[in-house]
Amino acid sequence: MDVNILSMRYAKALFQFAAENGDEKKVYEECQILSMAFPEVKKLRVTLQSPLVSEEEKTLLIREACSPGGKDVSPSFNSFIKLVIRNKREGYVNSIILIYMDLYRNSKHIGVAKLTTAVPVEKHVLERISEKTRLHLHAAEMEFDTKVDPRIEGGFIFDFNDFRIDASVYSQLLNIRKQLTDRNRRIV
């Protein structure tokens, strides 16, 4: 079945269910943790899709990924995990939680931004950037994240919602290298 249609249906159902139970925020936080686990733990997706792993083990695995020990998982999310595994849709969990996060952010008018710099940025600068971004995105509140990555050499990379401003020295050097090699590429 189409991954998008399926994920959207599950995500909408989860969102409505969580809203009815009043724990949509908690589910959102759990989705955030789980969404970070997928790119970090490469084997998570493979394990979830493996027929050799039992349904109980898969449930425990997702619960463990959401909260240490798997104890504080919200009832809505717990039911969701059970449903997904029972319907053998474990392979779509990543896509479903991403869509859920989008649905939640849209309903609460939350803007997302991430600033990557080579050296730490002072707090008041971050606050100003966050406020400016919030106004620009017409958001009620902002989820502002920062990252220090010395590999970018200098400048900054600023991601907000689905957009990126890449003003890092690293990217600019790469761009210059690409343009120069494109013009001079020749096998002698």
């Binding site: 991403l98 991601d159 689905d162 957009f163 990126r164 401003i165 890449d166 003003a167 600019q172 761009n175 210059i176 343009q179 120069l180 013009r183 001079n184």
Partner: peptide, 16 residues
Amino acid sequence: QLESIDSGIQVSEIGK
């Protein structure tokens, strides 16, 4: 060639 290099910064749409 260095003079003609485009090093402008642009806003681009991203996905994961």
